[in-house]
C-alpha cells in the first residue's frame, strides 16, 4: 500500500508552483529587468528574464493630464498598463513597396492568361484538336478530307492510344446521323482485323512520351513539342476516375522528320523534375 508521503508533495501542481523562487524586479537607470521562473512542458524549471526600456517622453500638459485619468467602463478593473486581453502586440509587418507598372502588367497578364485558359477548355478544333474553332482551322484544307475519310474520329478518344479507326467506320458512324455504339458497329467483332488495317498516317509519326509528371497539361506538351513542327494532335492519358494524368502522352506530328528531331532532342530531357522518355510509339497491334 503506497504511503501518502510517496505521492503527497509531488502530486499537487499547486505545490510545484510554490517551489519556484519569487519573481524579482530590478530597475537600473532606464532599464527594468523582470526575472520570473516557471516550468516548461518537460517539467524543467526555466528562468525568464524580460528586459524593459523605460522611456521618458515629454508631452503637452493636456496629454500628461489625460494620462492620469482613471479607467472607466469595461476597463475599470484593468491594472495600469495595457491589458493583454485587449491589447496584443502583433507580428512584425513591413510595408511592401510596389511600382504601379509591375502591378498593372502582372494583372493584365493574369487576365489574359485566364481568358486563354478559358478558351482552351471550351474551344477545340475537331480537325487538329487545337484550341480554335473548327471553321477557322488552318489545316482544314489538308486534313478535313482525311478526317471525313476516317469518320469515327471521336472513337479515337476512347481508345488510349494512336488507334486509327477501321475503314469501315465511315459508312457507319456518319451516314445515319444516329449514334451507334462502337460495340454495335460493323466490324466490332472483328477487332484484330480492323486494327491491322490501319492507315499508315498515325503510327508512323506518333511519338510516345513517358515519365511525365502529374501536373503536366496538354498545353505544356503543346509548348514543349510545337517548336519541332506542326502537331496534329496530342493525347494525354488521364485516369478515368481522378482525371489526373497517368504520366504518358502521344504526340502526332505532321511530318516524320520533325518527329524524329523531337525524339532526338527531348529524349532524356529534364522536364518538371523528371527525365522524359521520348520514343516512337509502338503500333498498338504489336502490344501484347
Amino acid at each position: 500500500m503506497p504511503s501518502i508521503d510517496e505521492h503527497g508533495p509531488k502530486s499537487s501542481w499547486a505545490d510545484d508552483i510554490l517551489d519556484l523562487p519569487p519573481p524579482s524586479v530590478q530597475v537600473e537607470g532606464n532599464t527594468k529587468t523582470l526575472t520570473e521562473y516557471s516550468y516548461d512542458d518537460n517539467d524543467k524549471m526555466i528562468k525568464i528574464i524580460s528586459t524593459f526600456r523605460i522611456e521618458k517622453r515629454q508631452v503637452p500638459k493636456a496629454i500628461a493630464l489625460r494620462k492620469g485619468w482613471k479607467k472607466y467602463g469595461q476597463s475599470v478593473n484593468d491594472a495600469p498598463g495595457p491589458n493583454s486581453a485587449t491589447t496584443i502586440v502583433a507580428e512584425d509587418v513591413t510595408m511592401q513597396f510596389v511600382t504601379v507598372k509591375d502591378e498593372e502588367d502582372a494583372e493584365k497578364e493574369d487576365v489574359k492568361k485566364k481568358l486563354l485558359d478559358q478558351a482552351k477548355g471550351q474551344v477545340k478544333c475537331r480537325i487538329c484538336r487545337e484550341d480554335h474553332w473548327t471553321k477557322l482551322c488552318p489545316y482544314k484544307e489538308q486534313l478535313d478530307p482525311l478526317r471525313t475519310s476516317l469518320m469515327g474520329d471521336d472513337k479515337e478518344e476512347e481508345n488510349a492510344g494512336p488507334v486509327a479507326t477501321g475503314s469501315g467506320g465511315k459508312s457507319l458512324g456518319g451516314s445515319g446521323g444516329k449514334y451507334v455504339p462502337p460495340s454495335m458497329r460493323e466490324g466490332a467483332n472483328k477487332r484484330g482485323e480492323s486494327m491491322g488495317n490501319r492507315s499508315g498516317r498515325d503510327d508512323a509519326i506518333t511519338v510516345r512520351v513517358t515519365n511525365l509528371s502529374d501536373s503536366t497539361r496538354e498545353q505544356d506538351l503543346q509548348d514543349l513539342f510545337s517548336p519541332f513542327g506542326e502537331i496534329v494532335r496530342i493525347y494525354l492519358a488521364r485516369d478515368k476516375n481522378t482525371g489526373m494524368p497517368k504520366g504518358f502522352a502521344f504526340i502526332n506530328f505532321m511530318r516524320k522528320e520533325e518527329a524524329e528531331r523531337a525524339i532526338e532532342v527531348l529524349n532524356g530531357y529534364g522536364y518538371d523534375h523528371l527525365i522524359l522518355n521520348v520514343e516512337w510509339a509502338r503500333p498498338s497491334g504489336t502490344q501484347s
Binding site: R66, K67, K71, G73, S75, P82, T86, T87
Partner: peptide, 27 residues
C-alpha cells in the same frame, strides 16, 4: 493631439485607447 484613439463598432460600445501603448482607457 494624437494621444487618444476612439473606436466605434457594430457592437454597442465605443472604446477609447491610449495610442502610444494600446492601453484601453475605457468604454
Amino acid at each position: 493631439d494624437g494621444d487618444l484613439l476612439f473606436t466605434a463598432s457594430k457592437d454597442q460600445t465605443p472604446n477609447v485607447w491610449f495610442s502610444v501603448n494600446g492601453e484601453r482607457l475605457g468604454t
